[in-house]
Design a binder for these strands. Structure first.
Lengths: 122, 122
DNA sequence: GCGTTAGGTACCAATCGGTAACTAACGAAT
DNA sequence: ATTCGTTAGTTACCGATTGGTACCTAACGC
């Protein structure tokens, strides 16, 4: 765990900033949803269970403001807006996929742990 | 992006629960801090820049309640409490390390993007 | 009594997130 | 010509969560 110049342990360094941008529930799921190519706003709302349009828009704006996502609006009616990963966003693909795969493989273990925990005498 | 039974896209499934537990700024940094072995509470506060004792305790409690971290208190004075990763927590080590490495490698790119963005006309 | 470590609590501000209602722009139906 | 439905987005209002500071306890050695 070498604490080098740019470390996630330092409060005011770019590495920590990066963690603050992506280490967020909705950001992780959104980035994962975009990892196969451009997706429309409405499709993202449908795909990502439990997200509201407002929060999705906010999440996308934040990812966009940090260079991870691009927004492309088409001059059509009704409007069509597609979001996709930038090059920087694509470099995050592997870590994000690993994380979501871990979640799929180990989510059940968390649920089971919670259940056995609540059975403790206390 | 196959939407299988346990998908991070489904609001109420174990995979999403797992994401909600770990996809959090302080959780990621804390898990990373524990990835080399047991660390005392006080050492974590020093190591993790910007975290307060209250938030660290809360973060550790949450990780503990979800089976990722164990807490070992020694009957000494002054008290000594060590936190370490469980087996489940260790299975997260690789994704977490990838994520923090990405943050170190690409944090600067985010900073630069922000700077060039703010230079835009308008 | 004082310092140590771990933690709990109280109070407060800021952020997050949900619902609902609104706009813009256009095609299609009436 | 008017109305309706569509997609994307904003705004307002509200409650819940997060996080900070400050202060308190417990247990022990000096």
């Amino acid at each position: 765990m070498s604490i080098t110049a740019g470390s996630v342990f330092l409060a005011d360094c770019p590495a920590r900033l990066a963690i603050e941008v992506i280490a967020d529930k909705w950001s992780v799921v959104t980035l994962f949803a975009l990892s196969d190519g451009p997706v429309r706003h409405g499709d993202l709302v449908t795909l990502i269970g439990g997200i509201s349009r407002k929060v999705l828009t906010h999440t996308l704006r934040r990812l966009q403001a940090n260079g991870l996502v691009t927004r492309q609006a088409f001059a059509e009616a009704p409007p069509r807006v597609e979001y996709s990963l930038t090059e920087l966003g694509l470099s995050l693909q592997e870590p994000i996929v690993m994380l979501t795969q871990w979640a799929r493989s180990n989510g059940e273990a968390i649920v089971e742990f919670r259940e056995t925990e609540s059975d403790l005498p206390g």
